[in-house]
Amino acid sequence: MNYLQRMKNGLTFLVLWFVLPFYSQTTETTILGRVTDVWDTPIPNVNILLKGTQRGTQTDAEGLFSLNANANEVLVFSSLGYGSYESAVPETGEELKIVLSPMVTDLDEVTLTKRKRKTQKDILAEFPNNTNLVKTSRGVLNKDRSSSSFQVINGKDLVATGPDFLTSLMNYSPSMRVVRVPEVKVYLRRIAYSIYDSIGTPPKAIFDVDGFIHETAPTYLSSHDIDRVAILERNAAISRYGPMGVGGVIVINTKATTQMDDSGNVKRYDNSALRDSLNELFIDESRNTPIPHD
């Protein structure tokens, strides 16, 4: 073998000696692992990225993952609510067991402010401008805070037509029926008629006028006398008035009482009567007035 041939073989050996170790270090292998929390519960959808690259994957529902990586790379684990964690890719190919700890967030100083409960005077001061407030014999009723649904009609929207204000009020309650002979009676629930066909007349609505209960319709009032009207049906009436509200309640606030309240002559609209109605509804078994189901 001549000198040139020996030099060529030597150079080839040197190239292989340098390249083969480098090639073996950069060969990708499949990394398997599982991610859990400190209670050994699998964490799904953990983001796993090879640091400094865009290559990565996520854990499945069992917290398992697999990813092709090189032995000299670093895995970065992150998940919402947990601290991030870095781990070098093992050279031996063993399965990784990664434990993520819950992230602890330092809160700024928290100030608790006690909410002042509104007094009767405060509520009545809002009455002229808050059209969702209605004064009843069972306390001031707020449409915005009531657990039952009902409607409030502004007296300005009642048109003076027909024999009395009920004619105009019927436009806001399609189920309302007014019987005028032999006396004026109002029925709010048409659905109740079939229920009572076999046992008699369905229950009629009662009226709460400026905090006083009326069994008959106050037809002496004109539309111009009324400040606002609330129509309470079903649960809204029964929960507030007890069995007497089974046929519904029409609450009327007149302009005269509103003006008296504004002048300082305030009627006490407390909830003691409401409490008595609820007690009567659940305790008094002497009443046999049937309550129709919705």
Rank of each mutant, 00 (worst) to 15 (best):
P203R: 02
T111F: 03
Q120W: 04
R55Q: 14
V229T: 09
A160W: 07
N45E: 12
N132W: 07
L16I: 15
K114I: 06
G83D: 14
P90V: 08
K156H: 09
S66R: 14
N47E: 12
P218A: 12
I206E: 05
A217I: 00
I206V: 05
S24N: 15
R138N: 12
D262Q: 11
K267A: 05
D210E: 05
A217N: 01
G56I: 00
I191H: 11
Y269E: 08
R268Y: 08
M103T: 11
E215C: 00
D106G: 04
Y269Q: 06
Q58V: 13
R145W: 06
V159C: 07
Y82T: 07
S149D: 14
N154P: 05
S24D: 15
L166S: 01
N279T: 03
P182I: 10
R180L: 07
M176N: 04
E109I: 00
G93R: 12
I283F: 04
N265M: 06
Y187G: 00
R287H: 06
A69L: 02
S79I: 03
L49A: 12
P218Y: 12
F127E: 09
T257H: 06
T289L: 06
E94T: 12
P243Q: 12
V181R: 13
I206W: 00
A61L: 11
S149M: 09
D261G: 07
G200S: 07
I238F: 01
E94S: 10
L232Q: 04
V19P: 01
T41Y: 14
P102A: 12
I199H: 00
E285G: 05
V104F: 09
G245Y: 01
T105R: 13
A217G: 01
R234N: 15
L274F: 08
S101D: 12
L67R: 04
D122M: 05
G264C: 05
K121A: 10
E62F: 02
D225S: 02
N271K: 05
L141T: 09
K156R: 09
V35C: 12
L169T: 07
A125Y: 09
K143Q: 14
V104Q: 14
G245V: 00
W39Q: 15
I48R: 02
V19Y: 14
L124N: 11
N171W: 01
S146A: 05
S168V: 05
V181D: 13
S148K: 04
T26S: 08
P128V: 00
I252F: 06
S175W: 01
S149Q: 13
Y172G: 10
G83V: 12
T57H: 03
T201P: 00
S66N: 15
P182R: 10
H214D: 10
S272T: 10
